[in-house]
Design a protein around this nucleic acid. Structure first.
Lengths: 114, 114
DNA sequence: AAGTCTCATCGCCATAAGACGATAAGTTCA
DNA sequence: TGAACTTATCGTCTTATGGCGATGAGACTT
């Protein structure tokens, strides 16, 4: 087995999360576990595409998979993944705030000159 | 300007972070701001490659850029990005722990049978 | 002004990733 | 057993990404 660095582990989780469809799958599953046939109608993607996305999230150990008869049920392995996403939002928000703050400074500067 | 959804903003930040070189650039810059010519010798990548990676981090508003004479200085915009990375580590660690726990259960189960 | 230094950008290539339809494999139902 | 259902996987196409060398564009130096 290939030696995995900390960076590689980080990249595996982060890249699993850096896709819009997969983020929406996580949101969808935040309400509770669902089988694929329940998930499918909620997304405008083919069955094979959704299956592949679910598998990527499973490979990154973000989703748990359980086979129940002819169905496969997926669930969030650890709800802390939502803390992570919230932290991304927080980072984005702070960036936007800093931009707004810079905007105000600029505005004041312009008013002085005006 | 195209309307950007919350998901798109998340994806932009997350995909900027999901590359090993870029994660290492962030670690490198965690010690303080550096110009490109200082960064280059620390990485086994061409100047154009590093420049592109720095730009991706800048586009995601993770790095600030300041032009200082003939040099360009990059710095972390918001150290909270490291909290985010630590949370990724935490998630990975919890996954590994859960795996180890499952391993122990399996082991006990095998011992019973043995 | 010419040369040097620093860094972004361009053009290209190879590989990865996302999308889909078709097919396969397993499960349940009649 | 055969049909219907559910989901994973395969093959293929298109686009995105990461890598590099070459080039371009400012900014100092002499």
């Amino acid at each position: 087995m290939a030696q995995k660095s900390v960076t590689d582990l980080r990249v595996k989780i982060l890249s699993a999360l850096s896709d819009p469809t997969r983020l929406e799958l996580l949101e969808y599953l935040s309400a509770g576990e669902r089988c694929v046939c329940e998930i499918l109608p909620a997304f405008q993607r083919s069955q094979s595409t959704i299956s592949k996305h679910l598998n990527i999230l499973h490979e990154a150990d973000i989703l748990e998979r359980e086979i129940d008869g002819k169905r496969t049920v997926y669930r969030i392995r650890d709800a802390q993944v939502f803390d992570l996403i919230r932290m991304v939002d927080c980072l984005a928000y702070r960036q936007i705030s800093q931009l707004a703050e810079a905007g105000k400074v600029l505005e004041r500067s312009l008013n002085k000159r005006g």
